[in-house]
Design a protein around this nucleic acid. Sequence first.
DNA 1: CGGGATCCGTTACGATACTG
DNA 2: CAGTATCGTAACGGATCCCG
Lengths: 214, 214
Amino acid sequence: MTAKRHYNLLCPIARALDAVGDRWALLILRDLHAGPARYQELHEGLGIATNLLSTRLTELTETGLICKPDGSSAYELTELGRGTDRILWELARFGGVFDRSPDPREPGNLRTLALPLRIVLDAVPNRPDLTVRLHIDDDVFTIVSTRATVDVRYGDSSVPADLVVRTSYEAFLDVGEGSLPAADFVSGHVEVIEGSQNAAAFFGMMGAAIAHQH
Amino acid sequence: MTAKRHYNLLCPIARALDAVGDRWALLILRDLHAGPARYQELHEGLGIATNLLSTRLTELTETGLICKPDGSSAYELTELGRGTDRILWELARFGGVFDRSPDPREPGNLRTLALPLRIVLDAVPNRPDLTVRLHIDDDVFTIVSTRATVDVRYGDSSVPADLVVRTSYEAFLDVGEGSLPAADFVSGHVEVIEGSQNAAAFFGMMGAAIAHQH
DNA sequence: CGGGATCCGTTACGATACTG
DNA sequence: CAGTATCGTAACGGATCCCG
């Protein structure tokens, strides 16, 4: 009965937008690319109204993009949902050309950073075996890098790390927009907290990732 | 006074969606990737309400994604607007996984095909020098291929072509979704109308493009 | 207290009619 | 042909309320 608004065209672009084109849908998926998240976490992180979040979560579940495993209280991406990574990445690259708002709304967390970070690291050849705890402003990420795969997750602070570093969201934005070169980023905007013997491998990987980004 | 709805976040994904995330915006851009188009052409092609089309065209112009050159009655992409191609391409690839609607709305034209066509042809190495007139159902495209660049435009029937071929939207969709192999496409779903001595070069290019698509 | 559901005012969308 | 004007409907957004 509830005739949802959709394009109903054969064109795959329109079909994609029917699935993920609603307001907030792509931002919810974006945050889930940082790992499973609970309702509250998404709510606070996005600043979305609770009724909308509820509706979107239901729709995205019905479309098969996300799920909430039995017994779990967290939503996560399905295999299908993980397929939105390239869309989000291209949006991120494109969005960088627009001026930053002078008075942006503060997000409740920086989950948004996990996806682009994973994508750029994924393109690095001969990645080191390394688990890195990455503090960005007040948030923590865990990067598990191997030669074959790389995973970036929000939190996971309990996993033992080979290296602990700190940087800022600001620096990340500058790098993404090309105004901060890779060398300047690693030399001036990343502070090593612990495990400095692994720093060279990490800095090398980050530098390669940024250089590779075009 | 008219505070447009936007996310107002620093995240480049959100900034991109503030620019192109409104309903119809990406589909308008999609159609303009097939070359300049007049108001009427967009209106008929998309099946959008006229007030919405008007609003979107204004917004996209203000954002700098499209323009209407002085003296021209057609809208076209700016350099910035052309930068949406990768976003649209990733949406197209992703949208193919969803079932086609059993009773889709018929678009007024097939402009939607120009962008994916250009992108896949762009990835072909050693492209032949060739101008192809491509009939798809009742629409006509002109493909201008050189080793260095490739251009796909809706119409342009006046440009002399080396080869004239015909295929169907259906076949195109099947190819895009992977259910029709490149070999079957060129051998069974493309009819050569004129200039058959150039057919091999074109078929080779199409086959390479489809194979390259992953 | 986390995870929503309900209510309600506001904004956006969509169809149609109309105008320069 | 290229849009405006109008108006009913659906979606959004904020707040509050409810339930296990």
